Amino acid sequence: MIVDAHAHLLPKHYPADAPECFPRMEPIADSTDRQLLFGQTKFRATEVFFEAERRVEAMDASGVGAEVLSPMPPLLRYDLPADDGLALARHVNHFTAELTSHDPERFVGLGMVPMQDPDAASAELAAVAEAGLAGVEIASNILGSSIGDEKFLPFFAEAERLGLAIFVHAMPAPTDRLPRSGMGTYVVGIEGTLAAASLILGGTAAACPNLRISFSHAAGGLAMMLPRANYFWGGSWNEEAKNPERAVMPDDGPSPLEYARRFYYDSMVFDHRAIRYLIDLLGADRLLVGSDFPAMPREEPAARTLRSMDLSEKEWEDVSWKNAFRWLGRA
């Protein structure tokens, strides 16, 4: 069995009386596709984004047993007024609950909340749980603020209390340090790193030890930085015994690697060598299958790279489906 823990949806419609700042999904002549128009975003969406039957057909064709469905990231518009952001989140969450109800054995839904207003986002989590959604998707930064900022700690604490899963999707932050052409490639790696590191350094990981959180694309370059962070924490190479005399930042608490091993990471890193490193450093019990489908095409069959690796039976079962159920808090 394969659970695709990183797949996206788009609502087919928006209310006729929705605020002007809401997205639009316009019909395309002589096609079942629809055009998403949302601010500067213009995206042609095929039926598989919003029709449950088409999703099941695509899953069967690729060998996927179940999907974890989250909103397409452009819907995470934290620049909207908080009230409009909440209204949009509720509409998307209602659609997600409706789509996943088509086949609850094969679809698990994640909602969204208006993170531009942390109090409203925290309060809305109860409605997310009541709707039967397994958790929420958030962006890797909130209008340029790290998710590890203390102002978001009550949100993560409430998600932990309610047993909801969090999926952090890398999204560009305002910057002029890279050309816009790099936003979908290098920025994903940078943003994933900053998001996960901020939870460790900002104290959220310590304050919420039972928070179930995953990161898109293996949290970018985090795994390459962790051995250096561990050296500065413990003063040793290769995760040997701690040497406080050499530690630059001595700390009696868990190491950066120990915190990172509480998180989950989707394994969509496009190379078996990168996956092997993630398994060696973080553990096979931390990785999830992810595809970004249908925004990006899946490997055919799904998880082909993972299938080609010399994983033990236990490693394969963990990565292909068991870790997803652990992250989601599902039996």
Rank of each mutant, 00 (worst) to 15 (best):
I275A: 05
G253H: 03
Q35C: 12
E124M: 11
V136W: 11
R273D: 12
E158C: 02
D30Y: 10
A241S: 14
G111F: 02
P297L: 05
W233S: 15
G184Q: 11
E150Q: 09
L76F: 06
R246W: 08
A295D: 15
D33R: 05
I142E: 04
N243W: 02
H91F: 10
E313I: 07
E258P: 01
H8N: 14
D318M: 14
L133S: 05
A139F: 01
A66Q: 15
L306H: 10
A126K: 13
G192E: 04
L194H: 10
T193R: 05
L143M: 15
R90I: 09
L75H: 14
F232Y: 15
W316V: 00
I142K: 04
A247W: 10
E160F: 13
R180G: 03
L69P: 09
L257N: 05
D117N: 14
R161G: 03
K314W: 13
A302I: 07
K151S: 12
L86T: 02
L9P: 02
D79C: 10
I2E: 03
P27G: 01
P11M: 11
A159Y: 06
R34M: 04
I200F: 11
D17P: 01
A303E: 13
F43K: 12
L110W: 00
I190D: 15
L153P: 07
P179W: 06
V68C: 15
R34G: 02
F38L: 02
V187G: 08
A129Y: 08
